[in-house]
Nucleic acid binder design. Sequence first.
DNA 1: TCATCAAATGTTATGATATAACGTTTTCAA
DNA 2: TTGAAAACGTTATATCATAACATTTGATGA
Lengths: 171, 171
Amino acid sequence: MPPSAPASRSTATFQRPGHDHRRCIDGALAAAEERCRRRGAKLTELRRRVLELVWQGHEPVGAYALLDALRAEGRAAAPPTVYRALDFLLSHGLIHRLEKANAFIGCPRPDDPHAGQFLMCLECGTVIEMDDAALGAAVAASAAKHGFAVSRQMLEVEGHCPSCARGAAGG
Amino acid sequence: MPPSAPASRSTATFQRPGHDHRRCIDGALAAAEERCRRRGAKLTELRRRVLELVWQGHEPVGAYALLDALRAEGRAAAPPTVYRALDFLLSHGLIHRLEKANAFIGCPRPDDPHAGQFLMCLECGTVIEMDDAALGAAVAASAAKHGFAVSRQMLEVEGHCPSCARGAAGG
DNA sequence: TCATCAAATGTTATGATATAACGTTTTCAA
DNA sequence: TTGAAAACGTTATATCATAACATTTGATGA
Ligand SMILES: [Zn+2]
Ligand SMILES: [Zn+2]
Ligand SMILES: [Zn+2]
Ligand SMILES: [Zn+2]
C-alpha cells in the first residue's frame, strides 16, 4: 500500500469550524497504526475505536463520555474498559491527558518528541497542542536555576482562540 | 505593632529538610491576614486553620486529608466545609491547586502577580513554586504565535529536586 | 435592645472520576 | 494442542467534588 503521504497532517494551529475533520481522524488513525506497528504494540479494535472517539473533535473528551459512546454502540463496557484503552493510548503517546479538565485529547504529532503544551479556549472549548521546543527548553532552563532536573512538563494555558478572541476582546 | 519584617520569607528555592518550617507557616499566615485585611475579606478561624494545615509542609495536601485533620481536632466538618475554605483561599491567591495531584499548596508570595509554575519532585513529593516572569512571558509569546490570548497559565513540571537528584541521577 | 439580612457554616445526599480485584476470552508461539 | 501472557469482561469500591437546604453568626439600623 502507498504510504498515504501525510503531507499536511494537523498542524498545531487553530482549525476553522469548517475544516475537513475526517482528515484529522484518518491521519491520526493511520499514524497510530504505523506507530504501534513499529513499536510492536497491539492497536486492537477497541483501542482503535477509543482513539477514534477521542478524535471526535478538537475538544477534550472525558472517560465517561467515551464509556457512554461505547455502550451506545452496543459494546459491553465498564469504566476499566475505557481506562485501560486510554492507558494504552497514553503510554504510546497517541493521546494526552489534560489535567485541569480531567479529559483526554488526541496527539496530532505522536512521533515528534515534545512536552505537553496546550492552549485551551474558554469560549469554544477547542484545545490545540503547541510543540514549541524553545519553550520546553526555557522551562527546563528555569527549572535548572533551582537545581531541578526535569522529567516531564505539562503546560495548560487558558484563554481565547483567534476566532473567539475577535468577539470577546479582553476575555 | 511592628510590621514583623518578613525580610526573608520563603524564597522560591528548595528548602532543606531541616529548615525552620514554623517560619514558613507564620510568614504565610501573617501575609494572609494582611492581604485579607487590605481586601476586606474575612479570614475566619476555619479558613485560617485550613490555610495553616495546607502549610503543614511543602508537599501538596488533598482536600480529604484536610477534612480528616479538621475532624481529628474535634470540629464538625464535611467535604463542603473544607472545599469552601479552599475556594476562599484560592480566590484570594493564598493557595494554589495542583491539577495533576488534585491537591493544594500554599502560595509563598500571594502579593506578587505570577503565573502558576510548579516544580514537583517525584522522589520526596516536595513542590516549589517558581515565579519566573520571563518564562510566563515566553509562554504568552508562544501562545500569541497561534493567535491565542492568554488568561491563565499553569505549568506543572515533574522531576527531581536537588537533594533527590544527587541520589538518583538520570531518574 | 432587638428585628433583619447576608455571610458563613453545618448537614445530608449525590455526582464525577478512577482503580482494585478477579474471572473469562483471545492470542500466539512452543 | 496446550500453556502462558495479554486483553477484555464484570463487580465492587475508592477518591475527588458539588448540589441543596438548614442553621448559626455577625453586622446594620430601627
Ligand atoms: Zn479536525
Ligand atoms: Zn502530543
Ligand atoms: Zn518550610
Ligand atoms: Zn503563587
